[in-house]
């Protein structure tokens, strides 16, 4: 089972090392991690996807809570939240494939963000299934490079992390 943890932390040097170090030394695996500032510049927010049963995730949360720089943790349920990932995909193109690729991008509501003589860079946003599907479709044209950002999540409605 995958859990998505939203973790508010103090925006301090070394805080990422404290969090990621805790995962490795306690034997928990991070599937994805993204971190950035919140509207309060003293506080950063991490979205961590961790695989494990409820017991494991409960331990992860408790251990994270012990870190002095961790302010608050929320275990976010998929059906109560909006979840997004982002990928940049550099695809090989020639005159014969360019328009087809652009059509696929349009269907996925992805954007072409760079056009080169032999390549296109496509920016796609969505949940991980959408990005996986996009990757599958583009494979046959030749993916030269791909970069995915970790998942970010936020609760729907008025609920959330204060």
């Amino acid at each position: 089972m995958k859990h998505t943890l939203s973790v508010l932390v103090k925006n301090r040097p070394g805080v990422l090392a404290r969090v990621s170090g805790l995962f490795s030394r306690r034997g928990y695996n991070i599937d994805s991690l993204s971190v950035g500032l919140t509207h309060n510049p003293d506080i950063s927010r991490m979205t961590i996807v961790v695989a494990g049963d409820d017991h494991v995730v409960e331990q992860v949360v408790k251990q994270l809570n012990k870190l002095i720089d961790v302010i608050k943790i929320l275990d976010i349920r998929e059906d109560e939240s909006v979840n997004r990932e982002l990928a940049l995909i550099k695809v090989e193109v020639d005159s014969g494939t360019r328009s087809e690729i652009m059509q696929i991008a349009a269907i996925f509501r992805a954007r072409i963000v760079d056009v080169g003589a032999r390549t296109l860079v496509i920016e796609v946003t969505g949940d991980s299934h959408k990005i996986d599907a996009m990757e599958q479709l583009l494979k046959r044209f030749g993916i030269k490079e791909m970069v995915r950002a970790g998942k970010v999540s936020i609760l729907r409605g008025t609920k959330g992390i204060e």
Partner: peptide
């Protein structure tokens, strides 16, 4: 006093 010890 340490909640992380509960059910560890």
């Amino acid at each position: 006093i340490d909640p992380a010890e509960i059910s560890k």
